[in-house]
């Protein structure tokens, strides 16, 4: 008993106990809401579990085999998600970066501009997508009607045409560049002014200062933003669901991978909620995201300045 109480006393005084006291809530939260679902999804992916049948059989790799052999939408949804993530990611980063550069300049009322540019980020995707859907409607939307009435031009089919639907979704995604802009802005504001002053004394041009000081100094934040927009783009659901519905209209051209998973897992009209099959799809997608993130970490060696803390 004495040995137990002394061990308890020692534990209470240790750094581990302090760590556990502070971290207990997030750890429990993580285990319950992240670790358990991840594990449960993996287990489900080896079964034929549906929500419409009481019996569950272990089918091992059958779902995975079936997906690679027969799921004609696998490639389509994967390619759509990658194009969407790449397109929206590049455009978002470029716009966010230039906006951050503008907001970093010393002009009057810059605070107001910061709020204005950040505001779209707080508008829910569902609301903004609904507005964009009206705007981009090829038959009656403001853009095409303006083009037709003023220039006699038949505008693109936007989200109603297979050729342009994904591009329209990418254009709509620019709306949410606010958080990336803030990350860039905070990085730009942390670049020591002394570096620019020293460069000026050496006669460096604006381009040289940008390439040799600004870019290397903000490169860790650029890397963070690249990883964030890629993961956000790949797991994007709302825009695809609102524009093309669970069907990915027109003709699966807006079908993103998470929408495909949702449609198989939770939409009764599409095969009776096949949780096992959808879980296998989710794990395949998880691996895809992991590969993309790993590639980005490898590529970061070429452009991230490790000396910047």
């Amino acid at each position: 008993m004495n040995r137990f109480s002394s061990a308890l006393k020692k534990f209470k005084r240790s750094r581990t106990s302090v760590f556990l006291m502070f971290a207990a809530v997030p750890i429990v939260g993580y285990l319950l809401f992240y670790f358990y679902p991840i594990l449960r999804t993996l287990m489900l992916s080896f079964t034929d579990k549906t929500m419409t049948r009481p019996d569950v059989n272990v089918v091992w790799l059958d779902n995975y085999i079936r997906i690679f052999r027969n799921e004609t939408l696998l490639g389509k949804a994967l390619v759509n998600s990658i194009i969407y993530a790449f397109g929206s990611g590049v455009i978002t980063l470029v716009i966010a970066f230039f906006m951050a550069l503008l907001l970093n300049s010393k002009v009057k009322g810059v605070g107001v501009f910061r709020i204005i540019l950040f505001l779209p980020f707080v508008i829910p995707t569902f609301a903004s997508a609904a507005i964009f859907k009206g705007l981009f409607d090829p038959n009656s939307g403001l853009i095409n009607v303006f083009l037709y009435d003023n220039f006699g031009i038949q505008g693109p089919g936007w989200f109603k045409s297979e050729d342009t639907a994904l591009l329209t979704m990418i254009l709509m995604s620019i709306w949410g560049f606010g958080i990336q802009m803030l990350i860039f802005l905070s990085a730009l504001q942390n670049v020591p002014a002394s570096l620019y002053e020293a460069a000026e004394i050496d006669g460096a041009s604006k381009t040289r200062k940008f390439l040799s000081i600004t870019m290397p100094m903000i490169s860790p934040m650029l890397f963070l933003n690249v990883v964030l927009v890629t993961i956000n783009g790949l797991k994007s659901f709302n825009t695809g669901y609102l524009i093309g519905g669970v069907e990915g209209n027109p003709n699966n051209s807006t079908l993103l991978f998470p929408v495909l998973i949702y449609r198989i897992a939770f939409n009764t009209e599409y095969g009776g909620r096949r949780l096992g099959y959808a879980s296998a799809l989710a794990y395949i997608f998880f691996l895809v995201i992991m590969v993309f993130t790993a590639v980005q970490f490898i590529m970061s060696k070429f452009y991230v300045n490790k000396d910047v803390e």
């Binding site: 090829p138 038959n139 095409n144 037709y148 038949q154 505008g155 089919g157 109603k160 045409s161 027109p250």
Partner: peptide, 8 residues
């Protein structure tokens, strides 16, 4: 599937 103005 029509994408022309006034045809929808």
């Amino acid at each position: 599937g029509s994408t022309a103005v006034g045809q929808g």
